[in-house]
Design a protein around this nucleic acid. Structure first.
Lengths: 185, 185
DNA sequence: AGGCCTATCTTGTCAATGTCAAGACTTGGG
DNA sequence: CCCAAGTCTTGACATTGACAAGATAGGCCT
């Protein structure tokens, strides 16, 4: 199907991830991505209308991958592991997560992005529903609290606001932090 | 003291905030800031070495303002109001908060920024210490959980991940969410 | 098989941006 | 009064995102 490069679209996404990992999402340059991929400076145009489109695609991919991670973790049935999986994903896919939570880089109203975000949200909410089963409290609020907790922890870690020793166990940290959430009463 | 503009440094910070509020921190242009302030395109150089330096100054100012807000809220003695103040600050100073949490825009190792962030962290931690007084649990972990919770909630709201009705009461939302944290046991 | 047609990629170009260098203007002190 | 320092301007350059036009390859139809 593709002709010259094999699959330039994927190659662009991968090299963009590489660049984001090195210099952060704000410093991403389309021309640099093209250079790394070995194509001309205007080649990306045919796969991504915009620089924003590339970043939006990356963000959507990140949310989809996160939703997958959460799905796997939910299979364990242990609610706390959902939160752990969230934080572990963020720290093990820092480039994806940085793009996901960067303000204004991705097109927030992109349908693909919205769908992927919805999947991740759905995983969290269904986990909370099982967790809160039989409780009289507002499950949506608890879900938002859980989401906020893990999202915030991941953000603080990746912002460097929470200094993390290189040998630190992120999963253990996440478990400790999420243990501060209410159990159902 | 200053000669032509009165206080160009402050004017640049203010116009930068304005621009960030309109187009997001990633789209900030030094030349645009200079234009808005009515000075030449190279004038900012004498007050901020870099574009990064301007953003770093904004971030530091934001953390300092946040620390002030938290200090005021802590005076109430009610721990939950600390979290509420955090989220209210984020939503009422969206430009500051966007710069604060944007990955890679500010120079993370800037001493002024680190100091301001430390002040905000200190407010949260001392609040948690009072909250957890007499508890056997690890107060640092609880502090991190509280910080993560409010930071994450603010981030999700400002990312648009949590759709907020225009007439919604942010303080009330924050109160509901933070109520999911453990009381000391 | 042969010829078109579309998708893919390249080269060329333009305005805008960040940063640097050099010069001009204002202010205040000796 | 004049000079020195701080403040701002003008000018320049490489880089970037985006657009336009042309080249190339592969698939499709007859």
């Amino acid at each position: 199907m593709p002709y010259h490069h094999g699959d330039l679209r994927r190659a662009l996404l991968d090299t963009a991830l590489e660049a984001v990992g090195e210099q952060g999402p704000a410093a991403l340059s389309l021309r640099d991505v093209a250079r790394r991929a070995g194509v001309s400076h205007a080649a990306p145009t045919h796969h991504f209308r915009d620089k924003t489109a590339l970043l939006t695609a990356l963000a959507a991919e990140g949310w989809a991958l996160l939703a997958d991670s959460l799905r796997d973790a939910a299979a364990d049935g242990d609610f706390a592991e959902l939160g752990v999986a969230y934080v572990v994903f963020a720290t093990s896919h820092p480039a994806h997560f940085a793009v996901m939570r960067a303000p204004g880089l991705a097109r927030a109203d992109d349908p693909e992005l919205e769908a992927a975000m919805g999947q991740a949200r759905e995983q969290l909410e269904s986990g909370v529903r099982r967790f809160e089963d039989g409780s009289t409290r507002d499950a949506a609020t608890t879900a938002l609290a859980a989401w906020s907790l893990v999202h915030g922890l991941a953000a603080l870690v990746l912002e460097g606001a929470v200094p993390l020793k290189p040998d630190a166990d992120v999963a253990e940290l996440a478990r400790a932090v999420t243990s501060r959430l209410h159990p159902p009463t």
